[in-house]
Design a protein around this nucleic acid. Structure first.
Length: 587
RNA sequence: CGGGGCGUAGCUCAGCUUGGUAGAGCGCUCGGUUUGGGGCCGAGAGGUCGCAGGUUCGAAUCCUGUCGCCCCGACCA
């Protein structure tokens, strides 16, 4: 049976909804696919569900091909398992929490590692049962600080989440690879360009992690890639560590007066004017060591300071810092923080003073000191002398000062060398459409998921976690496939295969259209039939363009001669076709 | 959490400066007309003007507070 527009539960809007800015959001609402319920929360209408189901079907087929089984969990879950793994607290304000009538804590799951782990623990005890991969397609809840862009970043969204269970690391590698391969097939079928980038494992824990990003300027993720094939999220980028330098012939560090040089630029100018280098090269910001005070707020609410030293031509990237110091929250230290440490001379902070070390756990201040990986032993720096208006020149790492360790907190720039030597990187933006993780044993350990191995010994299971954002992909496809008139779906996910328009009032038009619809359905096509009697052709054409079914058949004034028009929504091309040939045309 | 914008009919908006019976277009209902690009004529239904206080003879309009929404930023597996 065709879907008849005269009775379909669909209403298109003539004008853009006032609360939608992003193209995909605007068109999906206008064309009757979704309706907003609350910020970041949407209802799905029949035609929208059809597209969502098409995407889910592709995902299900490839999940099945990868050997994974589908299950389904509730979104509403008890606190306890999340308490055990620590995520009840770690997730912070992003977690929707609620209580039942008895006062028991519940949550709307942001992701389901805990309960999948417990399910396998419940059913399996032997290595013979493994490997196992199971998945669900389910709605997830995250209380985003600011939902935006319609479906692209919502608070409720549909996600395919898969989990793998192995008892050896080698097995995990295989399971991970199987999911990764399935993702490549899925995105290829969806016609979505993607880049696989090295990612930070973040709050999920675990080791290996890669993101599938669709490269586009509207993306919220920044990643780097080199011509030689290196690709990483900026949070996961690791700096190429230069070789250690032999400093035996270096002169001793000297303290110079550098009045009124609170910023790097003023310092560089002053150095070139008053203390030029012997070899005539200009001092640059990269010759200076900038020491930034960060304040960490730990999960238990305590606040501590840490100082990071980065080359003066770089800034601290707070997102990268969050990764380094997770799960603590990171911000720049404020005046109050600094006031508690009178040993720190704002604007002239450095690791060294004539009286001894100033920064570091064992120093005068006792503040933890971490440096950029480029600050290797033997590098010489201009940096603060911990006195107002004075800097120390030629301060050599490893000789004059030592840090507590290194930290990847400096911003990444185009042209930076990646760690694998594959050539300078460029920066690009992308939308995260999939993410694969090797979780390792974190969750199995916390929740006690163990199996007996070949030797009758209990071993902890190792896990992987794999996500695809279904509704985000739908929004992205809408974002990529439209024109000023409306949506233009790719055939693979279109709500219908063909949109048949009866354009005219004569009975012959409707008879011919009905015949065309029957023929198309006989060839297995899903048809949307605009059979509305009192609606003018202009309205029908406009709706067809808005709705975005890729193939349109217009049955109109040619019907009397047995001729209909084929209208390609994407190219706009219209060609004539005899009614008798319609079946073979689409066959 | 900071900055900006906005809450009036199902949708998109005007009216507010300068207080005086609630408006338009689209959509919806009925009748007629029209049928290849959102047509036309006529008659209707539909709104506690986000909410609460205040000023006033009188408040959509002025004042105070409050709630909500959108955008930018911070934040965000």
């Amino acid at each position: 049976m065709p879907t008849r527009l005269s009775s379909y539960f669909l209403r298109t809007l003539r004008e853009d909804p006032s609360d939608a800015e992003v193209t995909s959001h605007r068109l999906l609402v206008r064309a009757g696919y979704i309706r907003r319920q609350a910020p970041g929360i949407f209802a799905w209408l029949p035609i929208g569900l059809r597209v969502k189901n098409k995407i889910e079907t592709i995902v299900r087929e490839e999940m099945a091909a990868s050997g994974a089984f589908e299950v389904h969990f509730p979104a509403l879950l008890p606190r306890e398992p999340y308490e055990v793994t620590g995520r009840w607290d770690e997730y912070g304000e992003g977690l929707f929490r609620l209580q039942d009538r008895k006062g028991s804590d519940l949550l709307l799951a942001p992701t389901h590692e805990e309960v999948f782990t417990l399910l396998v623990k419940d059913l399996y005890n032997s290595y013979k049962d493994l490997p196992l991969s199971i998945y669900q397609i389910q709605d997830k809840y995250r209380d985003e600080a600011r939902p935006r862009a319609g479906l692209l970043r919502g608070r409720e969204f549909t996600m395919k989440d898969a989990y793998s269970f192995d008892y050896t690391d080698a097995g995990l590698d295989l399971s991970y690879q199987a999911q990764r391969d399935a993702y490549e097939r899925i995105f290829t079928r969806l016609g979505l360009e993607y880049v696989i980038v090295k990612a930070d494992a973040g709050a999920m824990g675990g080791s290996r992690s890669e993101e599938f990003l669709h490269p586009t300027p509207i993306g919220e993720d920044t990643f780097v890639r080199s011509a030689g094939g290196y690709a990483a999220n900026v949070e996961a980028f690791t700096t190429l560590v230069p070789p250690v330098i032999d400093w035996t012939s270096f002169p001793a560090a000297e303290v110079h007066d550098t009045p009124d040089t609170p910023t790097i630029q003023t310092l560089v100018d002053s150095a070139n004017a008053n203390h030029p280098r012997d070899d005539g090269r200009e001092w640059t910001a990269a010759d200076t060591l900038k020491n930034i005070v960060l304040a960490l707020t730990n999960l238990d609410g305590t606040r501590e300071l840490v100082i990071v030293g980065v080359p003066g031509d770089r800034d601290v990237d707070l997102k990268r810092a969050e990764v380094v110091f997770a799960p603590a929250e990171v911000e720049a230290a404020n005046a109050g923080d600094l006031a508690k440490h009178p040993g720190l001379v704002t604007g002239y902070i450095g690791p060294w003073a004539p009286a001894g070390a100033v920064l570091g756990s064992t120093s005068a201040t006792g503040i933890r000191y971490l440096v950029d990986p480029r600050v290797v032993d033997g590098t010489a720096w201009i940096t603060g002398a911990n006195e107002n208006g004075r800097h120390v020149f030629g301060l050599v790492a490893g000789r004059d000062f030592a840090a507590d360790g290194t930290a990847e907190v400096a911003n990444v720039r185009a042209g930076d060398p990646p760690p694998d030597g594959s050539g300078p990187v460029e920066l690009a933006r992308g939308v995260e459409i999939g993410h694969v993780f090797q979780l390792g044993r974190k969750y199995a350990e916390a929740l006690g998921l163990k199996v007996l191995d070949e030797n009758g010994k209990l071993v902890t299971v190792t896990m992987g976690s794999y996500g695809i954002g279904i509704t985000r992909i739908l929004a992205l496809l809408a974002e990529l496939n439209n024109d000023p008139k409306g949506l233009i779906w790719p055939e693979t996910v279109a709500p219908f295969d063909v949109h048949v328009i009866a354009a005219g009032r004569d009975e012959i038009v409707f008879e011919t259209a009905a015949a065309v619809v029957s023929t198309l359905e006989a060839t297995g096509r899903e048809v949307l039939y605009d059979d509305r009697r009192k609606v003018s052709p202009g309205v029908k054409f406009g709706d067809a363009e808005l709705i975005g079914v890729p193939q349109i058949v217009i049955v109109g004034r040619g019907a009397v001669d047995g001729i209909v028009e084929l209208w390609d929504r994407r190219t706009g091309e219209r060609t004539q076709c005899a009614v008798d040939n319609i079946g073979t045309h689409f066959a």
